[in-house]
Nucleic acid binder design. Structure first.
Length: 922
RNA sequence: AGGCGCGUAGCUCAGUUGGUUAGAGCGCAUCCUUGACAUGGAUGAGGUCGGUGGUUCGAAUCCACUCGUGCCUACCA
């Protein structure tokens, strides 16, 4: 016997290991393949709500397609996350008072591998807790030998084709991490700064001009001053020389239309080595590149001795004060400007001239744009294609070299003269370029951007560059499930690389999901202290532990007080254990396309209750079917109205669920299942089954029919629910399946239900609606008149049609039981009814004698309210039908509908008004 | 500056190509421990669909404008 209440923890701990050990997650064969590549999480990371949401969607799709008989693979794996991972380990070293340079490259990398071993399975353990049916037997890591081989192969091939090149360019330099980063790793945000107006004297002493800048310290690297070619104020200055203050240099005044005469003073100091726009201007006028910064963003030897060694902040202060002393500082204004910061380090990014490797993006982007335009790849929701085009059309070359140690080392070697050779390994390079063994070669010190290897993920995980059966079977994959934030970082690059090296798109659809926010709509972040750990929702956590977790290791420790306060306010009792299934069902029910989701504890609580409902419904079903005849052999059965009705409703639910999942509307699928199970199966069908199963007048065929329906409908619902709630459905299915005539070791590999139209019965649905209206009519009176549910009521019927009479006869038992009736009597039309409360089912009147039960004024009030509502509605419809425009132009069916409605309402009104007169007159 | 969203019940959200009285969950109110379930049951209250104007017989839905709000991209030194 099942426990009385649903206890998720017990049942969830049981199943996952069994599934995995039995190999159920591995592709099971079948004609059409279905494959999802997991967006590889950071190997040393841990599961957050965004992952949990994303994984729920992917697992639901995977389980659904697996049950549909597809050859299904959800590819598992993780990413080495270059900078992020290296930073973590460096921080550990710092805590020991060491730097990575104290260790040296090889030992440091060893140390990272150790750390990966130590923390690397945290996230895979968590994924398992979520019930994710990933094929762990094929798990990959971006630094695996196979995937590294793919990286080298791609690098060499692109280089051979001239699509990878090395060059000295201005790149985004992170002065803290000492590495270049790509455009995408720079976050620009508005910050308060200043605009300095500085006077530059002309070299011939004939006057001066004033430049405006937000970065006075870069003046040490100025190459010229630019004015607009048609700016009348400065025509006379063009071509003259300026004596650059504080520096022993002269620079020219040039004309360039890049300058906006309206902005600032109309004179722009140009520093080609430290600003992307200035770089362009400098190129146009063949200006020298004067680099004044070291890799730490300190002033270097190209600047006057007085400033050397100062960092950029100190240098700015000194320069401003020196200019002021020379009376060259005209004014300082407050000015808001966009400050670029490294997304990892948080420090201000410095445009710096360095040698880097780049991927030429344009030629790769063109086919990638076409793939989406032609519909070979579809975004869901569609409008994300605009974001994609927007970026792709204006794509810049991709800086792929990083000056860090953790990652794929660039397969390029230099000889003593600095000549570069690219190849898969050193031996290949020597052979290809006929370099003798005594020629010294040194491999490039840099590693590749992590996204370079992630871009190959859809095919490198399947064995590329080798030709493998997996590639044949699963590439292109079916759908990519991901967040909009990495469309540029990852999605676009996978498409480019996939088309280039596989000659086909990496996936046919891209499902873009929303961001998970907290209950107040705030983005969850460690620094805000509002993160939720999915595991804590599953297992529960005490307030104390939650506060500790949220206030530990903060960047700004002073936030701790506020975080603690907020946490105590939102979770006064901590978080109870809801279980994985409730969490997953909640994610699903919030997943309407694209929209961000606010995660509210009330929702997950409601869905935990839903699990409990399923649990208890099952208890009832098992109580009535275990050890009983559930119609497994061919013994005759008689299906009741309720049986035929619930079977019919089930078909519609199946069709709806399939339709919704196919459209990625997990919210609607979840709602459909929720409503069917709770509002139809539990609220009505289980109650309707009781009279048949418990009444001694029902025969064996009827009981058999109802038991069979009870168990089979439940078994089917379990399969429908399984992709969303894998654990509870498996647990229950094990007990239910044999009674429903199903065999198999797991629900995971059972076929997903398919609707059978022949089992949809409009008749049964209509008659059942009549029964429900009848019961609800009586309940309404009971509820509004405050009559105890336990009090059996006598009921009189008037105005019954022959249909009513038939239905009444068929369902007497059900009506008596569900509406708790003492008696049902039909009055001839001519008979006067006693003073009664009334409910209508079509034309039929249900009368409940008021004697001793119902207060006259209360009933009058109730009737008046009802009449009021109907009259308003009638006026609306009558007005509509009086409108010639409507009657002439609206489709006939719509008009007919309105007419019918009009009739029904006026007939209802009639009945109610008569009733009111009758009561009032007494 | 461009692009993309959002605004529907107290709260969180559905609402398919315009066409029943705009729905659900939670919350709220009243009543109820009848043997699946109080993590429950019954009944009920609550919305001029951000605003204005337009198209239409008919608009939450389509168009224009407007207010509020969020995100993304690019930026003027």
């Amino acid at each position: 016997m099942m426990d009385k209440t649903y206890a998720p923890h017990d049942i969830e701990s049981r199943w996952y290991a069994q599934w995995e050990e039995n190999g159920y997650f591995e592709p099971q064969g079948g004609d059409s393949a279905y494959c999802i590549m997991i967006p590889p999480p950071n190997v040393t990371g841990s599961l957050h709500m965004g992952h949990a949401f994303q994984d729920t969607i992917m697992d639901a799709l995977t389980r659904y397609h697996r049950m549909q008989g597809n050859n299904t693979l959800w590819q598992a794996g993780s990413d080495h996350a270059g900078i992020a991972t290296q930073m973590v380990v460096e921080r550990q070293l710092n805590a020991e008072g060491k730097t990575r340079h104290d260790l040296g490259r090889e030992p440091f990398i060893e140390r990272i591998w150790d750390w990966k071993e130590h923390s690397g399975n945290t996230i895979s353990k968590q994924l398992r807790r979520m019930g994710s049916s990933l094929d762990w037997s094929r798990e990959r890591f971006t630094m695996d030998e196979g995937l590294s081989k793919a990286v080298r192969e791609v690098f060499v091939k692109l280089h051979e084709e001239g699509l990878i090149y090395r060059g000295k360019r201005l790149v985004n330099w992170d002065p803290k991490l000492h590495t270049a980063v790509s455009d995408l790793e720079v976050i620009s945000q508005e910050e308060q700064g200043h605009m300095w107006h500085m006077r530059y004297p002309l070299a011939d002493g004939s006057g001066d001009l004033v430049v405006a800048t937000t970065r006075p310290e870069t003046m040490l690297g100025d190459a010229c001053v630019a004015v607009h070619s048609s700016d009348e104020r400065y025509q006379h200055l063009i071509g003259k020389m300026i004596a650059l203050p504080l520096c022993d240099r002269e620079i020219p005044v040039i004309a360039d239309d890049y300058v906006d005469p309206e902005f600032g003073t109309g004179c722009v100091k140009i520093t080609p080595a430290h600003d992307f726009n200035d770089y362009e201007v400098g190129q146009r006028h063949a200006m020298p590149l004067i680099n004044i910064f070291t890799i730490d963003a300190c002033i270097n030897e190209n600047a006057p001795a007085a400033y050397r060694g100062m960092d950029r902040v100190a240098a700015r202060k000194q320069i401003v004060s020196d200019l002021d002393a020379l009376d060259l500082l005209v004014k300082v204004d407050d000015h808001k400007l966009m400050i670029p910061r490294g997304d990892r380090s948080g420090v201000i990014i410095e445009p710096l001239l360095t040698d880097q490797w780049f991927v030429k993006a344009k030629p790769l982007a063109e086919p990638a744009i076409e793939a989406v335009k032609s519909g070979k790849i579809k975004f869901v929701p569609e409008n994300w294609d605009k974001t994609y085009y927007n970026w792709m059309n204006d794509i810049q070359d991709w800086c792929i070299s990083r000056q860090i140690w953790w990652g794929h080392r660039i397969p390029a070697w230099y000889d003593a003269e600095g000549k570069v050779y690219v190849g898969r390994d050193e031996a290949e390079v020597r052979k290809k370029h006929q370099l003798a063994n005594n020629v010294e070669l040194n491999q490039d010190e840099d590693v590749l951007d992590t996204w370079f290897s992630s871009a190959l993920w859809p095919f490198s995980t399947l064995g590329w560059p080798d030709k493998t059966p997996e590639l044949d079977t699963f590439y292109p994959t079916s759908v990519l499930v991901t967040g909009f934030d990495i469309i540029f970082f990852w999605v676009a690059r996978m498409i480019m690389m996939g088309l280039k090296f596989m000659d086909d798109v990496p996936f046919k659809e891209i499902y873009i999901h929303g961001l998970v926010r907290d209950a107040e709509g705030q983005k969850m972040s460690k620094s805000k202290g509002n993160v939720l750990d999915p595991i804590d929702l599953i297992d529960g956590i005490s307030l104390q532990a939650l506060v500790e977790k949220r206030t530990q290791g903060l960047m700004q420790p002073k936030m701790a007080t506020k975080i603690e306060k907020d946490t105590r306010k939102h979770f006064p009792d901590g978080i109870p254990s809801f279980g994985t299934d409730a969490l997953r069902f909640t994610f699903a029910s919030l997943a309407s396309t694209g929209r961000d989701i606010r995660f509210d504890l009330n929702r997950i609580e409601g869905n935990r209750n839903f699990c409990n409902k399923l649990w208890n419904a099952t208890r009832y079903v098992l109580m009535n079917t275990e050890g009983e005849d559930t119609g497994l052999d061919d013994a005759p059965v008689e299906l009741s109205l309720a049986d035929r009705w619930i079977i019919s409703r089930l078909q519609r639910t199946e069709a709806n669920v399939i339709d919704c999942i196919d459209k990625y509307r997990f919210d609607l699928a979840a709602q459909s299942l929720y409503e069917f199970l709770w509002n139809e199966y539990c609220d009505w069908y289980l109650e309707l089954s009781k009279p048949i199963l418990l009444d001694e007048s029902s025969n064996e065929q009827q009981k058999r029919g109802t038991r069979r329906t009870l168990i089979r409908v439940l078994e089917t619902v379990l399969r429908l629910l399984h992709p969303l709630m894998p654990f509870i459905t498996e647990e229950i299915w094990q007990q239910v399946a044999p009674l429903a005539g199903k065999s198999g070791d797991t629900i995971m590999l059972q076929p997903f239900p398919t609707p059978d139209d022949s089992r949809i019965s409009a008749d049964a649905e209509q008659e059942m609606q009549w029964v429900m209206d009848f019961v609800m009519g009586v309940r309404k009176i009971r509820g509004e008149m405050n009559i105890a549910p336990s009090k059996p009521l006598p009921v009189l019927l008037k105005n019954t049609s022959t249909d009513d009479q038939t239905r009444l006869k068929n369902n007497l038992l059900l009506l008596n039981k569900l509406a708790r009736l003492a008696s049902i009597d039909t009055l001839p039309t001519t008979d006067e009814a006693p003073q009664s409360a009334i409910a209508l089912v079509g034309e039929m009147q249900i009368l409940i004698p008021m004697a001793g039960l119902i207060d006259k004024s209360a009933e009058l009030e109730r009737l008046n309210k009802e009449i009021d509502k109907l009259e308003k509605e009638l006026a609306r419809i009558t007005g509509k039908l009086a409108n010639a425009g409507f009657v002439d132009k609206a489709p006939a069916t719509v008009v007919e509908n309105e007419k019918q409605k009009q009739q029904e309402i006026s007939s209802k009104l009639n009945s109610l008004k008569q009733q009111i007169d009758k009561i009032a007159s007494l």
